[in-house]
Every structure is written in C-alpha cells, then in structure tokens.
Design a binder for these strands. Sequence first.
DNA 1: TGTCTATATTGACAGCCATCGATACAAGGC
DNA 2: GCCTTGTATCGATGGCTGTCAATATAGACA
Lengths: 125, 125
Amino acid sequence: MPNTKVLPLLDPASDGSVAPCCPPLTERPFTAEEAEAAARMFKALGDPVRLRLFSAVASHEGGEACVCDIPDVGVSQPTVSHHLKKLREAGLLASERRGTWVYYRVEPSVPAAMGRLLTNASSVV
Amino acid sequence: MPNTKVLPLLDPASDGSVAPCCPPLTERPFTAEEAEAAARMFKALGDPVRLRLFSAVASHEGGEACVCDIPDVGVSQPTVSHHLKKLREAGLLASERRGTWVYYRVEPSVPAAMGRLLTNASSVV
DNA sequence: TGTCTATATTGACAGCCATCGATACAAGGC
DNA sequence: GCCTTGTATCGATGGCTGTCAATATAGACA
C-alpha cells in the first residue's frame, strides 16, 4: 500500500489537476458539506506534532523526506507513524516505500488550496 | 469584557501592525514553540461548526455580523457561543457588544498570516 | 421595578484522540 | 533460513472537546 486514497477535499478535474473543495471563506457562508471537507484539512494541521512533521517534510530538499530524515519531535516512533498517517489521510502528504525506507512528500495543491481559502478571506469586502 | 486578549500568534510590532508568528512551512522545520502557536490557529478552524461560523462572519457585509445574523448551523445556542469564544481565543474573531447585540468581526491579519504560511509552502524548493 | 430578548457561563457526559508499549510487517544482509 | 533495522499496527489509557439543559448576565423598554 504505497499511500492511502486521495480524499474528496479536492476534486480531481478532467485534466488531472485539482480544484479546491470550497470557495474562499468570505464568499458566502459555508455549507455543512464544505465545512466538513475543509475542517478535515485544518484539523490535520491543528496539532503541534503534526505541524512539525509536516514542516520537516515540506522544508526538506525536494519537498520530500525519509522518515529517518525527520528530526526528533519528542514523541515515540509509533506516535510519529500515527501522525504521518493522519497527514496522509488528510491528503497533505503522500508516501512511498523505496527499499528499506518510506519517503513522504508534500501534496502541494492541498496547502495551496487552503491558502487561497484564507488569503482571499483577509481581503474583506 | 469586549473581547479576550490577543493571542501571541502574531507579534504586535511597534507601528501597530502584526507580524506572523512563524516562517512559511517550507522554510525550515518548525520549532516546538512555533508549532504550538500555529497549531492553535489551525485547530480553531479544524471544526466544521466553527468553520461555518467563521465563514458566516467573514462573508457578512463589512466582515462583521451580529450573532443574530449567523444562519443556523444545527447546534444549540450555548454551543454556538462556545465556538465563537474559541474563535476569539484563537485570535480569529473579535467581538464587541453594541446595545442588545454582540457583533463579531474577522481579525483580518490572522487568516492572512495563516495563508502565507501555506501558500509559500506550496512552492516547493 | 419588572419583564423580555440576546448572549454567556456552568456542569455533566459521551465520544474522540494523542500517547505509549508491545508487537507485527517489510526489506536487506548474512 | 536467521538476524537486524525501519516502519506500521494493535490495544489500552488518560485527557481533551463538542454537545446539551439549566442557569446567569446584560441591556432595552415599560
């Protein structure tokens, strides 16, 4: 199992690109479904350990890192694995085994979509 | 008590503006303190009900809404109040009582800072 | 003063979740 | 085959959190 399924947070378009799940936060009140989808992503980054793991992967050269490259964040190995799985399930990271090691890389379109959700939200009408 | 204290997520500069708490996620691995601060913000948006409330305020004209303006999101009045408090404590909303009603408005610099954290994270080096 | 409306707080409870140790699985070297 | 190393899963547990009903508080208006 190289990596888990891509979540319905982004709709894969016909050309293979992805479209954001939701309009900017300022456009109109979110529906329950939109909020459910977007909250999953924010929740994934709403834990300090996960944020450090994500940042470690994102800042590693090539936007990709072996688990062994990730600096110690003060929790046990099973906990690290648990959090990496959560980030995968949220669509923020993808993983791939290469021989002995497992590499994680950032799924760039997802943070980009989250960013658009927010940055357009700052230019209040 | 018009609104609770501004959290240390953004450092108020001498000129009154605010600077982001953390570098972009790709710049380097977050420290424990940076992750703690940034995770608080993401966590606040990591709940569907809070996201709907925030979106309702952000999309209301003027980026401000009375609680009575917020459409029903399917939870009780105390729960709405509880979530609005959480959003306040995360620095995402500010509140002000005007007569009978309490108005909430978006603290624009905070989502903007969160957005920068993420959008720069998508342009992987 | 009393009453009505709008919002906040309190207290309780159920479900979720971050964490760990123990263990399992995967791959490479012997 | 066996052993070692890297990663994932399992099961248990304590703490956090979203939710509600009940109640409190704030302000407007008689």
